[in-house]
Simulated scan of single mutants.
Amino acid sequence: MRIPFELAETLAAAVDEGTLDAAARRLHVTPSAVSQRIKALEEQLGRLVLVRSKPVRATDAGAAVIRLARQAALLEHDTLVELGDDPAEGARISVPIAVNADSLATWFLDPLARLSQRHPVVFDLHRDDQDFTAGLLESGAVMGAVTSRGAPVAGCRVSVLGAMRYQAVATPGYVERWLADDSAAALAEAPLVDFDRRDDLQNAWLASRGVDPARPPRHYVPASNDFATAVRLGFGWAMLPRFQSHEAIARGELVLLGGDPVDVVLHWQQWNLRSPLLDAIADEVVAEGRRVLAPVG
Rank of each mutant, 00 (worst) to 15 (best):
P4G: 07
V292M: 01
Q130Y: 10
A214W: 05
A282R: 02
L266P: 00
W271E: 05
E253S: 09
D16H: 08
A248H: 10
V81G: 08
L125P: 04
A98D: 11
V158N: 12
E288I: 05
G162V: 09
F132S: 13
V285Y: 02
I249T: 06
H77K: 08
D86E: 08
R26L: 15
L192P: 01
G258A: 08
S32R: 14
A163H: 06
A188Y: 06
V56R: 12
A250M: 07
L161V: 06
R37Q: 08
R57M: 02
T147P: 07
A287P: 07
T133A: 14
D86P: 09
L192W: 01
E76V: 13
N272K: 01
A64N: 10
A141G: 10
S35L: 15
A280S: 04
E89S: 15
A8I: 06
F123N: 12
V121I: 03
R2S: 15
D263L: 06
F132T: 14
R177T: 15
L112G: 11
P111E: 04
E189L: 10
M164F: 15
G258M: 07
L240D: 02
D60L: 14
R118I: 02
V153T: 13
D60E: 15
V146D: 06
V15G: 03
D181W: 15
G135S: 09
E176W: 11
L192T: 09
F227D: 03
F235Y: 14
D85K: 08
G144M: 09
R232G: 03
E288C: 05
P4D: 10
M239F: 04
G18R: 13
A58Q: 02
G252F: 01
M143N: 04
R47F: 08
D86S: 01
A101C: 03
A113H: 13
L11E: 11
A180K: 04
L109Q: 14
I93C: 01
R26H: 14
R127L: 06
P276D: 06
Q71Y: 01
L161R: 00
L277H: 05
G46Y: 13
R114I: 10
V231W: 00
H119N: 06
A88G: 06
W107F: 08
